[in-house]
Nucleic acid binder design. Structure first.
Lengths: 163, 163
DNA sequence: CACCTTATTTGAAATTGGATGCTATAACTT
DNA sequence: AAGTTATAGCATCCAATTTCAAATAAGGTG
C-alpha cells in the first residue's frame, strides 16, 4: 500500500505500549510481528521491507503485511526517497519531512516546523494541507543548482547572444 | 525511467517543428513515433504509456521507449499523480505543476508562477530549487481537510477531556 | 488445561509498471 | 537502388508489492 495513513498517528516510547495499543484493537502479537516492531524501535532511520525481512529471516510478504497493518493503525509510516522501495519508520522515531535532490540523490531530513511557513502559504493560497512525509520535496540541492547556474554562465560566455 | 529530465525543455506548436528538431538530432520518424507524437499533440492532459499503446495499437514497450526518448530530448515530460503509472504530457501542452489530494485523489494543476513564492522560500531557507512537475505537492485538499477538522471537533464534543 | 475461533504466517504465484535483448524491418543517407 | 543503422515488435526479465490457499498459532472460553 502506498497510500497515506487515514488514521491518527500513534507514537510510543516502547514496544509494550505499542503492543497494548494493538491488542486493544483486537490484533494479535505473533513472533514475526514482535520482531518487526522490535527492529523498528531499534532503527533510527527508515528501512525497507526487504531489509527487515532479510535481517529477521522473515518472509517479505509477512513483513509487508505487518508494516502495512502497523501503518493502517498509525504506528508506522513510510516515505519514498528516490526510486527504491518504500522506507518504513516508527511514528515518533525520525518524524521528519524530507528534501530530495533528484540530481545527486542527497536526502535532507527536516524538522516539520522548518516547513511550516511553506505549509501556511499553501494553506492560504490553495486550501491545501500539505506534508512532505510521504513524498519528499524534490528538486536540486544547493550544489547541484549552483552547478547548473555556472554551466548557464559558461554557456552564455560562449554564446553571448543566445537567451 | 523515473528520473527528472536533464535537458532543456523544448516546446513546439505543431508536430512538424517537433519532427524537425528530432531529425536535427539524428533521430528517425517511424510510423509509431509519429502516431505517439500526434496523440500527445491531441491530448490536453497527461496520459499513461498504457493508454497510448492501447489507443494506437502499438506495443507498450515501444511506447515507453518513444516517450522516454522524447523526454530525454526535452519534448515530453512525465508526472506521478497518485499511485498509478507515470503520465506523459507534451512540454508546452499542460506545462503545469500539481496539487494532489491523497484522500480523494483530486488533482489541481497550477501555473508555475503560482508556486513561485513557495519556491523562493525554499531557495532562501534551504538552497533548494524545487519543482512540482514530476512529483506533485501532496496533502489534503480543502474539503478533505475541512472534513478532518469537523471530525476533530465532533470527537472533541464527545470526549471533551481528550487532547 | 483443552478447545475453538480466527488472526497470522508462509511460500508460491500473480500483478503492476517498466526495462532489455533480439531479430526483422523500415528510415534516412549517398 | 543500396547500404546503414535506428526502431518496432515480441518475448523475457525485473523490482516492488499484493494476493491466495493451506498450515499454524494467538488469545479468549469452558
Amino acid at each position: 500500500m502506498t497510500t497515506a495513513p487515514q488514521v491518527a498517528a500513534l507514537a510510543f516510547e516502547n514496544i509494550d505500549d505499542a503492543v497494548d495499543a494493538l491488542r486493544a484493537r483486537g490484533l494479535r502479537l505473533s513472533i514475526a510481528r514482535r520482531m518487526v516492531l522490535e527492529l523498528l524501535f531499534r532503527e533510527a532511520d527508515p528501512v525497507s521491507a526487504e531489509h527487515v525481512g532479510q535481517t529477521l529471516g522473515i518472509d517479505v510478504a509477512s513483513v509487508y503485511r505487518n508494516l502495512e497493518m502497523l501503518e493502517r493503525h498509525g504506528l508506522v509510516h513510510h516515505v519514498h526517497l528516490g526510486h527504491g522501495p518504500g522506507l518504513y519508520v516508527l511514528v515518533g522515531r525520525g518524524e521528519h519531512e524530507y528534501l530530495y535532490c533528484d540530481r545527486c540523490a542527497t536526502v535532507t531530513p527536516l524538522e516539520p516546523e522548518q516547513l511550516d511557513p511553506i505549509r501556511d502559504r499553501l494553506r492560504r493560497d490553495f486550501g491545501y494541507e500539505v506534508r512532505f512525509t510521504h513524498f519528499p520535496l524534490v528538486g536540486l540541492c544547493r550544489s547541484c543548482a549552483d552547478e547548473d547556474r555556472s554551466a548557464a554562465v559558461e554557456s552564455h560566455a560562449r554564446h553571448p547572444h543566445a537567451h
